[in-house]
């Protein structure tokens, strides 16, 4: 069975991601349906008499998968915008990627009309 760590940690991670998602829209993240749903679900499954409750574990697994989804999408989007989001690179930029520079010739190369 997958080891997931403490549910409180997962919830904190999820709330942090929700804050990131709502940062740009400017609305408080506590107003979102996602926040209400998560808090309700985590509260409802907090108490269990069994040592290993399968339903609780399953819910925690889903929460961990959702956290992984939100985190990875944010990281992927950041990398995409940094490296891939601007269309094709110019020759100069491509050369710069591997630490090269295009040759510079003052006054042109002589073959321009």
């Amino acid at each position: 069975m997958a080891v997931l760590g403490s549910p409180a940690r997962t919830l904190r991670g999820l709330l942090r991601e929700l804050r990131y998602l709502n940062a740009a829209t400017g609305r408080p993240y506590r107003d979102t349906p996602a926040y209400r749903y998560l808090m309700k679900a985590f509260r409802a499954h907090r108490v269990t008499s069994e040592k290993l409750c399968r339903a609780q574990h399953e819910l925690h697994f889903q929460a961990a998968a959702y956290l992984c989804l939100l985190r990875s999408v944010r990281a992927h989007l950041a990398l995409h915008q940094e490296f891939h989001g601007k269309g094709e690179r110019s020759v100069e930029e491509s050369a710069g990627l591997v630490g090269l520079q295009l040759p510079r010739q003052p006054g042109g190369k002589g073959w321009e009309p």
């Binding site: 992984c68 990875s72 999408v73 990281a75 992927h76 990398l79 995409h80 490296f83 891939h84």
Partner: peptide, 12 residues
Amino acid sequence: DYELQELRARTA
């Protein structure tokens, strides 16, 4: 890293 994050997001 790009592929890792994309694969993680899709798998999750």
